[in-house]
Design a protein around this nucleic acid. Structure first.
Length: 921
RNA sequence: GCCCGAGUGGCGGAAUUGGUAGACGCGCUGGACUCAAAAUCCAGUGUCCUUUAAAGACGUACCGGUUCGAUCCCGGUCCCGGGCACCA
């Protein structure tokens, strides 16, 4: 019997599905382990070979953990709300739900062929009302909460209202949009509408006017992480800044916890670093400058991380969008300032980024007083200062800040160096080193001492105070689209009012057309009766990240109709032990999820404050494109090795008609009508194609469909090969060059059990050598899987199988554990062989073999190397180092000894049965 | 510009993190079995000198350092990949 992967794979996939082999149970005495993949957005193109990389890795780990006696939760679902389905709907009129269903069916089919051990009974999609009910529910909770800075967590808004009624804002330290102050009397005198507006300043989910990324082409606002280089991530359309009232999530309130929480997570350093940069904590000082405008005095607070340079301030700069800008503009400068503001306003985000080196600005006419020197400095307005960060105003120290320097040069403002010996004739001196000068009491200090000294001074004199700032902004939470979760909010007398919880889910209404209305309102405005008790409902919908922010919780208890997750399920599964997905979510999903989870944690709905304990980023699989070379002006194609002899043009060729860079000539002629009569210049009778590594995409004809690999080599080969390609976290091109190797390995493995037509496994006792082979593999596989070095595990497997093949070992005692160990990687063939060995149950219920070191260790080899009679160091040699190795090593040390002079090397070598006591003097 | 990560044969990549560099796989060369091919098996395969072998020298991007010993640690340079980008 040959290794018939087609029959085998189909058979066992059916078996696993029928028997619900991978169902996870809550009432288990085993320890739990939760392995999660970032669930996919089901696009119309289907899966390519890069998508399953992470899924295979997580599947191997899940299967391994099951063998190790864990109760494993390994679920899968779909992130199904999204822009592509909606855009397709706008173009074709087809309901997004229909396309989404179709795409999901295809994804499922493709995934099933690879043999994943998902518990499909827990599957859900985010666009299902039964699911998004909980997205809406969480939103209502955020709407009904504020963030208390003094207790460091979210609290119900009712508590804040009670405080307002009693004491107004006195003594409160809460996260807010803008600092408000009012008394209890004032609060109690406010109208409902006024109260609602005030509360919006504190709610965690709130509505507020803010400068947003507006994409006119998509007709919607976008979050910061959805914009790349001033273009929308989806579609690549220009994005502009626009002031709009939008729903937002007060993520900034959690900045500190999001940052500090990283410490205890088992994530890669690079990913943590990305989040740290995104959150962007900086320690600085807020200093008040008195500014004189036409004789009128205003206090302007600036933020700086370098108060030590305050003696070098030669001007101040305001953000154009700052609220202070109008007030600080003198009458005679008004026209020019307004002209500048108009100019800034009409720039798109992309232009702003592109022109980041062009310095622009205008003088406001006002002068500020440096609180330390009493000096008068001009106040300028420039777009290089951002309204959204710090206070929207800065003190400029051109000598020691490159941006201030560029500005000063352009507008001829003075540049005063305050660090000894630095040269600022060509560029600013930004480094935090050197001795201070021209700086009053700071003179002579090192910059590193001057920073805290200046902070202390400013605080002592009451001129300002230390301040921690974060770059992290609140998340814009509304989208002007159809295909998303509706907000459970209606407008009663214009007041945003939450829908009662028992009215959830608020389901998406049917509408006639999916595009925005003529008046620019979101598509939901087209819905008939989009009202609640006669009041209009919110017409924007939630963004893509809403549905994916807490989905890992839902898998714990996916069919619960009354809670997001029951306390029991949550306390059992707690959080994700291993999360595998791409780095592209570093500053989006992975921040939002952590925020969302912390919020639910604050309110006591979940028991862990971090959602993902360990995170692995699988690399991207790039495409490997193939080229043919057409001789210019002809229909003649020259093989890659000979192309230098002609003037040629490279053309992408469909990789499906190329194998190992050899072109299938007939298939090529049939590929496109224009190549029907193609002629070829061959080398060694073959046409060799050129190649390049590029992004995997349809237009480059380099997309590899996993189905094709499954057809040709089988799912087990695909799984093994994707893991054998290299380290999981590295990006690498898909290259089928080596795939024959792993396929050969599987066939070899099979032949340990079958010699052509017969099952040949014997009950003969294993020899010491057999056991050594086996246990070396057990030890290696265990260590490697735990560290996700799957490629070296597979190598170890190949070594073991070669070894057993060479020695013609077909003993049950050896092969049975081998099958178990292979099952995470190649589950189908393992299942087949497991049953051939006479087992009734799935190999998934077997136990991972115990590693016995005694079978592999033959010796401990230790050198003690002494010079002048003193032991200088000892060397432990690798356990499997053979005699030749040891001798080579000894030679090396002898050389060393000679080099060093008259010393001796004394080796204590204990190698029972092999090398005993080689002593060199 | 700033912050991470990396650079090892013809190729993908190993190397117990300071101790046999190049495991394993691909590719290539030669051989066995075949009428032949496929499949399978065996041998060789970093570079240089050498008819071959033995033996040797050189080799982990480049330059320098620490060490008895460096792919690994330190300093500098050059490339590649990723992230952030007027965040004061």
């Amino acid at each position: 019997m040959d290794y018939d992967f087609r029959g085998i794979e189909k058979k066992w996939q059916q078996y696993w599905a029928d028997k619900h082999t991978f169902k996870a149970e809550e009432n288990s005495s085993k320890p739990k382990y939760y392995v999660l993949d970032m669930f996919p957005y089901p696009s119309g193109a289907g899966l390519h070979v890069g998508h399953p990389l992470g899924y295979i890795a997580s599947d191997i780990f899940s299967r391994y953990k099951r063998l190790k006696g864990f109760n494993v939760l390994h679920p899968m679902g779909y992130d199904a709300f999204g822009l592509p389905a909606e855009q397709y709907a706008i173009q074709t009129g087809q309901h997004p739900e229909v396309t989404t269903d179709k795409n999901i069916a295809r994804y499922r089919q493709q995934m099933d062929r690879i043999g994943f051990s998902y518990d499909w009974d827990r599957e859900f999609r985010t666009c299902d009302p039964e699911y998004y009910k909980w997205t809406q529910w969480a939103f209502l909770k955020m709407f009904g909460s504020y963030y208390c800075n003094s207790c460091g967590k979210a609290r119900p808004i009712e508590e804040l209202i009670a405080a307002f009624e009693k004491n107004g804002t006195a003594g409160l330290d809460v996260a807010c949009g803008e600092k408000l102050e009012f008394t209890a009397e004032q609060w109690n005198s406010y109208s409902e509408l006024e109260k609602s507006k005030v509360l919006m300043n504190y709610r965690i989910a709130y509505q507020g006017e803010t400068s947003v990324n507006w994409c006119p082409k998509l007709g919607t606002v976008l979050a910061n992480d959805e914009v790349k280089d001033g273009l929308s991530e989806r579609g690549g359309y220009p994005v502009e800044q626009k002031k709009m009232t939008q729903w937002q999530l007060r993520v900034s309130a959690y900045a500190e916890r999001l940052l500090d929480g990283l410490e205890k997570l088992d994530w890669t350093d690079s990913l943590k670093e990305m989040q740290r940069n995104w959150i962007g904590r900086s320690y600085g000082t807020e200093v008040v400058f008195k500014v004189d405008t036409d004789g009128k005095e205003t206090d302007v607070t600036i933020f700086t991380t370098r108060v030590d340079t305050i003696f070098g301030v030669t001007f101040m700069v305001l953000a154009p969008e700052s609220d202070l800008t109008p007030a600080l503009t003198t009458a005679d400068r008004k026209a020019e300032v307004e002209e500048y503001l108009t100019y800034v306003k009409k720039k798109t985000e992309r232009e702003r980024i592109a022109e980041t080196k062009t310095v622009t600005g205008v003088f406001s006419g006002s002068y500020g007083i440096n609180p330390l020197t009493g000096e008068k400095v001009p106040v300028w307005i420039s777009e290089y200062v951002l309204a959204g960060y710090g206070t929207g105003a800065i003190m400029a120290v051109p000598a020691h800040d490159s941006r201030d320097y560029a500005f000063a040069k352009k507008f001829n403002l003075p540049i005063i160096p305050i660090i000894e010996g630095c040269d600022v004739s060509e560029e600013s001196f930004d480094a935090k080193e050197g001795k201070m000068c021209n700086s009053g009491f700071l003179d002579g200090m090192d910059v590193k001492e001057a920073i805290p000294a200046a902070m202390d001074y400013v605080e002592a004199k009451g001129l300002g105070h230390r301040k921690v700032n974060y770059r992290l902004r609140d998340a814009i939470f509304s989208r002007q689209r159809y295909w998303g979760e509706p907000f459970p909010i209606y407008y009663k007398n214009g007041i945003p009012t939450p829908l009662p919880e028992d009215k959830l889910p608020l389901t998406l209404p049917e509408i006639s057309e999916f595009k925005p209305t003529e008046t620019g309102e979101p598509p939901l405005a087209r819905a008939e009766n989009w009202t609640y008790e006669g009041w209009p409902l919110e017409t924007s919908t939630m963004p893509g990240f809403a549905g994916s922010s807490a989905y890992y919780l839902r898998y714990m208890d996916p069919h619960n109709g009354s809670e997001l997750v029951s306390r029991k399920a949550d306390e059992y599964w707690r959080n994700v032990d291993l999360y595998i997905g791409g780095t592209e979510h570093a500053t989006g999903h992975l921040i939002y999820s952590r925020f969302w989870n912390k919020f639910l944690f604050d309110l006591g709905y979940v028991c862990e404050d971090e959602p993902f304990r360990k995170l692995i980023n699988q690399g991207m699989i790039q495409g490997r494109s193939n080229f043919v070379y057409r001789i210019v002006g002809t229909n003649k194609f020259v093989s890659a090795g000979l192309r230098d002899q002609y003037e040629t043009q490279g053309i992408h060729v469909d990789i499906n008609i190329v194998r190992n860079d050899r072109l299938d000539l007939e298939a090529f002629k049939a590929w496109r009508p224009e190549f029907k009569d193609a002629e070829f210049v061959l080398e060694n009778g073959e046409y060799i194609c050129g190649w390049a590594v590029e992004k995997m995409s349809k237009s480059m004809f380099n997309v590899v469909n996993p189905d094709d690999i499954c057809d040709y080599y089988g799912a087990d080969t695909l799984r093994l090969y994707e893991m054998f390609l290299g380290p999981l976290e590295q990006s690498k091109p898909w290259d089928t060059k080596g795939i024959d190797g792993v396929n050969r390995f599987l066939r070899k493995f099979w032949r340990l059990f079958y010699n052509g037509d017969q099952f040949i496994v014997s009950d003969e006792k294993a020899s010491a050598e057999d056991l050594k082979t086996l246990h070396k593999l057990i030890g290696k596989e265990q260590a490697d899987i735990e560290s996700f070095s799957y490629n070296t595990t597979i190598s170890a497997f190949m070594i073991a199988v070669n070894d057993l093949t060479d020695r013609k070992v077909s003993k049950r005692e050896i092969l049975e554990p081998m099958v178990i160990m292979l099952s995470p990687f190649a589950p189908h063939i393992a299942e087949e062989l497991w049953h051939a060995l006479g087992h009734e149950d799935s190999v998934a219920y077997a136990s991972f073999p115990e590693y016995v070191e005694a079978y592999t260790v033959e010796s401990n080899v230790t050198y003690a190397v002494s010079f002048n009679g003193k032991t200088r160091f000892t060397v432990d040699l690798p356990k499997d180092m053979d005699k030749a190795g040891v001798e080579a090593h000894v030679r090396g040390l002898e050389q060393t000894a000679k080099y060093v002079g008259e010393q001796s090397i004394v080796k204590v070598i204990v190698v029972p049965g092999k090398i005993v006591n080689i002593v060199v003097k």
